[in-house]
Simulated scan of single mutants.
Amino acid sequence: MSDVYTITKRATKNSLLIAGLIMLSNTVQAFEHQHTEFTKVLKNVVVSDDEKQTRVDYAKLSANPSSLNAYLASLSAVSEQEYETWSDMQQLSFLMNAYNGFTLKLIVDNYKDFAAGEAESIKDLGSIFKSPWKKEFFTLLGKERHLDGIEHGMIREWFTYPRIHAALVCAAVSCPPLRNEAFVEDKVIAQLDEQMKLFLSDDSRNKINLKEKQLVLSPIFNWYSDDFEKGYQGFNKIEDLIQTYQLDIANDPQEVEFLKTQKFTIDYFDYDWRLNDISTF
């Protein structure tokens, strides 16, 4: 009789435990794929003068980083198992927002050095032995990560979208413009197209020189030229990228004809690594 009672009691206890776990799992909120909180942060601190390039009010952000930290905590709470259940566009948006968001955190956490004049570039946050992009200072998908891990080990490894190079912003003046909105699953392709057009239309970073029959581009297109030579999106060389996007944004008929011929040389600007802070521009 006592054995039956013990077994019944144990079964009842296990049933209650399972029921409790089910109830707990049902109360856990699904990840918010519109990244609303990150958009609020970006709209509050990203400033644009000409709608082609943006800068960041890091002093404002460092004075009140709670919203950014809360958003990044929500990213860190996502498990690898949950991430694997998402669509490709959800995953891509998540990783691009993570890169840009944790870059902001790296600057904010060290902003006192910039304010004191002890640092003027994100590169100054590294050391002789480790670049700032190799510093493991956050958790993502259950592991300690660094920024290079997101860009090179995840995004470039798992996705074939060369346009991401106009979307990931490493907090330097020569970087592409940081959007004042998060990347989101239902708009990310259009957002990437817009980013590339904005970046290429900025004469201070990518310029058509008709007189010299030359394009002067951001060194980003040199550093990651391989990504534009694999046939993704129809790009087999940098000239294909230029024809796809520069022709779409060119207003001068001479520039249009010049671009169509592809009879031009390509050179690259020097990269300005100074912080993309509102006080730098």
Rank of each mutant, 00 (worst) to 15 (best):
K105V: 06
K105I: 01
K105A: 11
K105Q: 08
L106M: 09
L106W: 00
L106H: 08
I107V: 05
I107L: 05
V108N: 03
V108K: 07
V108W: 05
V108I: 06
D109Y: 01
D109E: 12
D109N: 11
D109V: 08
N110K: 00
N110D: 04
N110I: 07
N110G: 08
Y111P: 07
Y111W: 01
Y111V: 10
K112C: 02
K112T: 09
D113W: 08
F114S: 04
F114A: 01
A115V: 14
A115Q: 15
A116V: 09
A116G: 06
G117R: 06
G117K: 11
G117A: 12
E118L: 06
E118I: 10
E118G: 07
A119N: 13
A119R: 12
A119I: 00
A119Y: 03
A119C: 00
A119T: 09
E120L: 14
E120F: 14
S121F: 11
S121Q: 02
S121W: 05
S121I: 03
S121G: 11
I122R: 03
I122L: 02
K123P: 11
K123R: 13
K123E: 11
K123S: 12
D124T: 12
L125S: 00
L125Q: 05
L125I: 02
G126Q: 14
G126E: 15
G126N: 12
G126T: 07
G126Y: 04
S127P: 00
S127I: 03
S127L: 12
I128T: 14
I128L: 15
I128P: 04
F129Y: 13
F129P: 02
F129E: 13
F129C: 05
F129W: 13
K130C: 11
K130P: 04
K130V: 15
K130L: 14
K130M: 11
K130G: 09
K130R: 08
S131G: 02
S131I: 09
S131R: 10
P132Q: 12
P132I: 01
P132V: 13
P132D: 05
P132C: 08
P132W: 12
P132S: 07
W133Y: 00
K134T: 13
K134H: 05
K134M: 14
K135I: 03
K135L: 07
K135A: 01
K135W: 07
K135P: 00
K135E: 11
K135Y: 06
